[in-house]
Nucleic acid binder design. Structure first.
Length: 436
DNA sequence: TCTGGGGTCCTAGGACCC
DNA sequence: TCTGGGGTCCTAGGACCC
């Protein structure tokens, strides 16, 4: 159970990308706009509230959004501005308490348990955050306040758009019970549908359902977690850092029969992105996973765990290529593919075992190929050149032809979350609310 | 014209070890 | 000689979140 007197805020910038565009261009204010995509293709990354009223949502194909809302204006993303303004809003939160857990570019938990005696009650702190973000950053932000993270998050969703909801201690169940189960963290469309099959539509109904029934339906872990949430039993603490568990990259490709040269080109590009980030953070991983999506959105993964962690572009490329082809061959090479992905997991920090890297380990895949040390030397040179002259100054293969409507690299960088990931060796639990 | 790209966590079966 | 239970790791798939 949460600590006595705990006060957690969840702050969430409203329709973030779209609000930034309306801030930057006054002509867009009050109008339905979509960031990303277009009437003929691509995908909508974010929609303004005016567009949401017509049913336009993030993740929706542009042509469908245009059909739902004929007045819709499509704008290209100003990705550098998103990062800058998101950071500025987070800085306001940090002024209220050092215990800020940023969970995406536009959203964070703040533990203000230790701040109330200085700054006033939760409603006062939350109102001050909203006023400052509006005045200093220029953006609307919704805030929920409660005793737990889960409840604070639900409260901020209820508060949207541009609102504030405080759940006073003792009123949790009165607040929670009538709300739809879909607001519980971890309940998506599939789970919602399954629960509806039991006649469970509200959080109160979920709380009153026997645990054996829920766990039979959803599995032990998911069912148990959901019931705990429905009973307002959420003991998660606000943590200021976390460790990455995997690093991946994927790319939609134009629908095509798999072609050896093209598959190799895309995979080497993806492996390069992944390994560059791994090396930049001093990480390497033992498990390499390749993903292939076929038409009809059926997607297949193949993975391989090595004896030693890798972060070498050429090695990851070769392994991913073998894995992808095994998936393609099993499906039948006549099937068209629509996406390729590469990911590395089972990560370990390489900086603490630098000495081992001096010894060239045996290459697990191609006995006659370049030894590990030579491959790492290539990566080191490439990283150094990119560090001086920019990311696109040197690559492993000719730059691929960009599809129309493809997501720009700047958006990929926003989604990487590298800035949210722990860099030091400190334990995530070192910062405990209320500790000296 | 037919849904992006970055992640996390859980499940379940099989291999393997003690 | 036959049998058992528990733990860990690996692999593939899927739900979910932003």
């Amino acid at each position: 159970m949460p600590a006595e007197g705990a006060v957690i805020l969840h702050a969430d910038l409203d329709a973030f990308y779209a609000s930034v565009e309306q801030l930057l261009d006054p002509a867009l204010r009050g109008r339905p706009i979509a960031v990303g995509g277009g009437p003929h293709g691509g995908v909508v990354l974010a929609a303004s509230y005016e567009a949401k009223q017509h049913g336009v949502q993030g993740g929706m194909p542009g042509w469908r959004a245009a059909r739902l809302c004929p007045d819709l204006t499509f704008v290209r993303g100003s990705f550098g501005e998103y990062q800058r303004l998101g950071d500025a809003a987070m800085a306001v939160l940090t002024d209220m308490s050092p215990l800020v857990e940023r969970i995406s570019i536009d959203e964070a938990f703040v533990d203000v348990s230790g701040s109330v005696h200085l700054l006033g009650p939760p409603a006062t702190i939350a109102a001050r955050i909203r006023r400052r973000v509006r005045e200093e950053v220029g953006l609307p932000i919704s805030v929920g306040a409660a005793r737990t993270k889960h409840l604070a998050k639900i409260a901020s969703q209820v508060a949207k758009p541009d609102g504030l909801v405080v759940v006073e201690p003792g009123t949790e169940h009165r607040f929670l019970d009538p709300l739809p189960v879909g607001l519980v963290w971890g309940v998506g469309p599939v789970t919602e549908e399954r629960l509806a099959g039991l006649g469970v539509r509200t959080i109160g109904e979920l709380a009153r359902t026997p645990s054996s029934t829920v766990e039979r339906l959803l599995g032990h872990a998911v069912g148990g977690k959901l019931l705990a949430m429905a009973h307002d039993d959420d003991a998660r603490r606000v943590t200021t850092s976390r460790r990455a568990r995997s690093v991946g990259a994927q790319s939609a490709v134009r629908r095509q029969r798999p072609d050896a040269a093209e598959v190799r080109g895309v995979l080497s590009h993806l492996a390069d992105r992944v390994c560059r980030r791994l090396r930049g953070q001093g990480l390497a991983g033992r498990t390499v996973t390749a993903r292939v999506r076929f038409t009809g959105r059926r997607s297949v993964t193949r993975s391989r765990t090595l004896r030693e962690p890798v972060a070498t572009t050429l090695t990851v490329t070769e392994i991913a290529e073998q894995l992808a082809w095994s998936a393609i061959t099993e499906a039948g090479a006549s099937h068209e593919i629509t996406l390729l992905g590469v990911s590395v997991s089972g990560l370990t920090d390489q900086r603490s075992i630098q000495l081992e890297l001096e010894l060239p380990p045996p290459d697990p895949w191609r006995p006659g190929s370049a030894p590990g040390a030579a491959r790492r030397a290539v990566d080191g040179s490439v990283d150094a050149i990119r560090g001086r002259f920019g990311a696109t100054s040197v690559g492993y293969l000719p730059v691929l032809v960009h599809r129309k409507g493809a997501v720009p690299d700047a958006f990929r960088e926003l989604a990487e979350h590298d800035d949210l990931v722990e860099r030091g060796a400190a334990s995530p639990d070192e910062l405990v609310p209320g500790s000296p």
